[in-house]
Amino acid sequence: MSHTQMLQQADPKRWKALALLCTAGFLTIMDTSIMQVALPVIKEALGYSQVNLQWVMNAYIIFFGGLLLLGGKLSDLFGQRRIFVWGFFILTLSSLFAGVAWNDMVLNVARAFQGAGSALITPAAMATIMTFFAANPKEMNKALAFWGLSGAAGGLAGIFLGGIITEWLRWRWTFLIYVPIGILVLFLSSGLLPKGIRRNGRIDYAGAISVTAAIVLIVYGIVIAEHNGWQSPSTICHCRSGPCYS
Rank of each mutant, 00 (worst) to 15 (best):
P137F: 07
G99E: 10
F63T: 15
F187E: 00
S75W: 07
G182Y: 03
A157H: 11
K16G: 14
V51C: 00
A110G: 04
K13E: 00
F89K: 00
V109N: 01
L96H: 06
I197S: 05
A213D: 04
V41P: 04
F88T: 10
R170G: 02
A59H: 03
I236G: 05
I177C: 10
M57H: 00
L156C: 07
P194E: 13
L144V: 14
A19V: 10
Q9M: 04
G242W: 07
L193F: 09
L91G: 00
S150Q: 13
T174M: 04
S232V: 05
R81S: 01
D204M: 07
R172H: 14
L217I: 01
G79P: 09
G162Q: 12
T28D: 04
V185C: 09
F175M: 13
G115I: 01
W55L: 10
I203H: 00
G65F: 05
M105E: 07
A225K: 14
R202V: 12
M1S: 15
A19F: 13
F26G: 08
L193S: 11
I159V: 15
F63D: 01
F175S: 03
W147Y: 15
R240Q: 14
S189P: 00
G148C: 01
S75M: 12
Q36I: 14
R81Y: 02
Q5V: 12
A45H: 09
A208R: 05
V179R: 06
A101T: 04
V223N: 11
E139Q: 12
R199K: 13
A17P: 03
L77W: 14
G151S: 08
P40F: 08
N200T: 12
E44L: 08
L184W: 07
G182R: 02
L192D: 04
L77I: 13
D76T: 09
N108M: 15
G72D: 04
S241A: 15
Q8H: 08
K142W: 08
I181R: 06
T122D: 03
M130W: 00
G242T: 14
L107S: 03
S33Y: 12
A157T: 13
V106T: 13
